[in-house]
Design a protein around this nucleic acid. Structure first.
Lengths: 213, 213
DNA sequence: AGGCTTTTGACAGTTACTGCCATTTCGTGG
DNA sequence: CCACGAAATGGCAGTAACTGTCAAAAGCCT
């Protein structure tokens, strides 16, 4: 109930002010833990960093770290893309052709994700490529994004979000985007991430090109 | 070096006889461990089964279990689809249109996987759906299958197997097939698995249907 | 200031997994 | 058939990520 405040739907405009000391401190702690982990990972690498070290540097106990993040991997990668996606989806006209919708929504999410903190975005994708555990956790988190795509597509086309067809489509999408991120990281984060995503979206929409033969 | 004998390429016909006592015993141990785990999982569930229990029932030490399988998850799901896939790929004419190739190859692999031991196939997919750790491990293993698809597509179309386009295509494929397995398991393994895969392949080839609007 | 709730730290316990070393077991050449 | 080297095994100690519990501390409210 404390962790994962992702599902809070639209963000009513007036709920910034009423933040008690408690809430503010929680945010600070959360970010202190993140910062500690980022720093340690850059110094020693992911596996070499223990949760105790993270706790120590963040000046909290190990128990507290686990109260804020369910697993070590989550410390590096929890960040809510889904709300952005939802917001972006909501902003689109309901009769827009689906391919256009999904493309723009994905590009927007990618843009926000990278521009917000380019340094962290790179570290995150690098770890995704290098550390299996991180990659796995990311996949899990992406698959809930997949369900979100199911819902969106279902809503716009009047299909069953739980049908095999819709689900397979959504997860193939996720798989493709995941690979795009990996590609970007493996090639030293060359070029614009959104450009990479754009190319990936082409493939997902039209296939790899030169279809047969 | 002992585990994962998957990459042994074509299977020359005459290497069944020269199996020493040692080799035979190793296979027996391996299967004993697997059998022990399957049984215990059905009795108590996945998480409740510890490696020590598995070792005990298989009449080996815990050390030995870890010598045979790198992780607990691998005990349930290691089984080499990739060799089947390779063999099947090899059997196809080189000028066959790619969509036909990939479809038939995948269907063949699915068929073999399920028919060989339906009971285990169901348990495996059920665990995939229910246990995140198993699902993750499966994803990792599927992503090496993805590289295999990259290589095959690249070879047949003269493209770079490491290009973004080819990689995204392959992984979207994997994502879709993964979801098909999950779907099958979540719906109580209704119907033929190959039929489910067939529908998934339609989606991967042509999109979810009713493209836009 | 005093009582209530939430957050925190300390601690003990579990389990997957890693190395290391001594012992056993198998394959082989004499 | 027997030794000798290599491989497989078991036992043990250690690590690190979690989990659950309980008492102390800190923010909140009147």
């Amino acid at each position: 109930m404390t962790t994962m405040t992702a599902a809070r739907l639209p963000f009513s405009p007036a709920d910034r002010p009423p933040l008690g000391l408690r809430e503010r401190k929680k945010i600070k702690t959360r970010e202190a833990i993140r910062a500690a982990m980022y720093a340690l990972v850059e110094e020693q690498g992911y596996e070499a960093t223990t949760v105790e070290q993270i706790a120590e540097r963040a000046e909290v106990s190990a128990s507290t770290v686990f109260r804020y993040f369910p697993t070590k991997e989550d410390i590096v990668l929890t960040d809510e893309y889904d709300p952005i996606l939802l917001e972006e989806l909501r902003a689109r006209p309901a009769d827009e052709p689906w391919p256009d919708t999904i493309r723009d929504v994905m590009l927007a999410a990618a843009r926000v994700g990278v521009e917000e903190d380019p340094h962290v975005a790179r570290l995150r994708t690098r770890l995704m490529a290098e550390v299996p555990a991180v990659r796995s956790r990311m996949m899990e988190s992406m698959s809930v994004t997949g369900r979100l795509i199911c819902a969106a597509l279902a809503e716009r086309t009047g299909r069953d979000p739980d049908s095999l067809e819709v689900r397979v489509y959504a997860m193939s999408f996720i798989g493709g985007l995941m690979e795009a991120s990996l590609y970007w990281a493996e090639n030293g984060h060359q070029g614009d991430f959104t450009a990479v995503v754009d190319r990936a979206l082409d493939v997902l929409e039209h296939g790899p090109g030169q279809e047969d033969r």
